[in-house]
Design a protein around this nucleic acid. Structure first.
Lengths: 189, 189
DNA sequence: GAAAATAGGTTTCGTGACGATACCATATTA
DNA sequence: TAATATGGTATCGTCACGAAACCTATTTTC
């Protein structure tokens, strides 16, 4: 298995490079770096417990000072809105602005990727997704990183009724669309 | 398939981030950035047609000026040796120095990765590798990038006898170890 | 309930990646 | 022999990135 595991690492590295190169290409139109696109993409999906500089810092695996700078840039470009949390005034809440949302619609990477994977059978794609997911979760656990997933697949999500969900951790009620967002407190089932 | 293809992209992105974070951690010991480790890793494997700044530039998907600077840094740190090609004096040939080879042995990422993928069945890993490889090849073809593979899997490799191989493209004879190296002229079978 | 500790963010500083452009030397073509 | 192409380097401006200092709001401690 040594051989295969090594190839898996190399392939992911290689694909990561190709994705970064593509991000650079797409981002250059807006004078944005790959990390900026990743930040915008994250903020687009982050739920109410996860729309802060701190959460983004954990997600990207960088230091808070670095992320603070990148967020400042995105703010100056009018792509991100920021406001102080009422309950805890140390906390900053982040949101995509209208311009930010528009940019995320225009600067999609997904189409290229879909074309590339178009001829692979659904069953094989599914296997691939599961293997990568398991590897990712293991890596994150080994490095004490948060897994970052959607509420849908979280142990803390409780279904009250057809359209009413609860987060068992915070005790908050969640709307249906919220259960599809990314949470930094995610705990896989 | 849209859903799955999207998840595949996200997972690869995410894994790419984790790998980069790990590279940053490993590299910080030597004051090296992820891109430096990637360059060293590439040079360790590159064959005689591919051990040049130009090839590395294509491999990393960056501009030649940028790569030239990174190579200068690696040279100054004594990790890379460089000499002018005799046949074509414009060309620079690159090689890991003894210190460079030593560093690559110490700064392995593979062990962590192997642990993470340890519990996945060989068959599933194989499927994953094949799917990722196909996706990578398609992406590269779509963006007119070179595939960069080992001679073993190249259409140009001809087997003369048990231990004698030929590259049909250059006409050169290849030693057995060379057939396991990475080539920028690689054409998948 | 004041002092100490902690936590979320920002600021500042130094290094160097990165793209763009200009530039240089060697090869190739006209 | 001149024009052009090719592999690499040098230079410049922007800004990612980590480290460390700093600020403010909250929590803990005694």
């Amino acid at each position: 298995m040594r051989k295969n595991a090594f190839t898996l690492l190399e392939l992911t590295e290689r694909l990561g490079n190709v994705i970064r190169a593509e991000m650079r290409r797409v981002g250059s139109t807006y004078r944005l770096h790959p990390v900026h696109l990743q930040a915008l993409s994250y903020l687009k999906q982050a739920n109410r417990y996860s729309n802060t500089p701190q959460a983004l810092t954990e997600y990207l695996g960088l230091t808070k000072g670095t992320v603070s700078q990148s967020l400042l840039l995105l703010y100056r470009k009018g792509l991100v809105a920021r406001y102080v949390d009422e309950a805890d005034k140390r906390v900053v809440r982040l949101k995509l602005s209208a311009a930010g949302k528009r940019l995320m619609k225009d600067a999609q990477l997904a189409p290229v990727w879909q074309t590339a994977a178009a001829n692979v059978s659904p069953a094989r794609v599914k296997t691939t997704v599961l293997v990568l997911l398991e590897t990712l979760r293991n890596l994150q656990a080994m490095q004490n990183e948060r897994p970052f997933g959607v509420c849908n697949t979280c142990v803390h999500l409780q279904r009250e009724s057809a359209r009413i969900y609860n987060c068992g951790l915070s005790g908050d009620r969640l709307a249906v669309p919220e259960t599809r967002q990314i949470c930094r407190l995610h705990t896989p089932q």
